[in-house]
């Protein structure tokens, strides 16, 4: 009786194992598409960093970036910063889509998007601006 009981528990545990294995598994983020997006964003970051610091560009609550206060950028560079913001957003959206796709779950895109939205803000440097849940700009 005891041994049967035990065996039952083992069976149950085994059945649960996939859950554990699944929860512990990493997401696939090493596809060529993700790598190339990551590299593009990394090299763009060197241009964007000073604008995050000045507050000209802020992190939006939906995981993108936005031109928060164009007046902080010299006139001649405003168009270029606008382009940087647009390109960054294009890459970020593609990144979220690619991660979902690389893991065989295109439907995860939205959740990955919102996961990133929180993590970008969490990891932002002090002094950078981000949008809170209400959409208002807050300085970190």
């Amino acid at each position: 009786m005891h041994s049967q009981n035990l065996r039952l528990w083992v069976v149950a545990m085994l059945l649960w194992l996939p859950v554990l294995a699944f929860a512990a598994a990493d997401l696939e983020i090493n596809t060529p598409a993700i790598s190339s997006l990551k590299m593009a964003m990394q090299s763009r970051h060197s241009q964007l960093a000073s604008h995050y610091a000045s507050g000209a560009v802020g992190l939006t609550r939906d995981g993108l970036v936005a031109l928060r206060d164009a007046a902080l950028v010299p006139l001649a560079q405003r168009q270029a910063v606008g382009s940087l913001v647009a390109a960054e957003n294009q890459d970020r959206k593609a990144l979220y889509r690619e991660i979902a796709r690389a893991n065989g779950h295109p439907e995860w895109e939205e959740e990955i998007h919102s996961t990133f939205a929180q993590r970008w803000v969490q990891k932002a440097a002090p002094g950078w601006w981000y949008q809170n849940h209400g959409g208002a700009w807050v300085k970190k």
Partner: peptide
């Protein structure tokens, strides 16, 4: 000239 957002400005 400039507007509040800085998106329309001249110098």
């Amino acid at each position: 000239f400039a507007d509040a957002s800085g998106l329309h400005a001249g110098e």
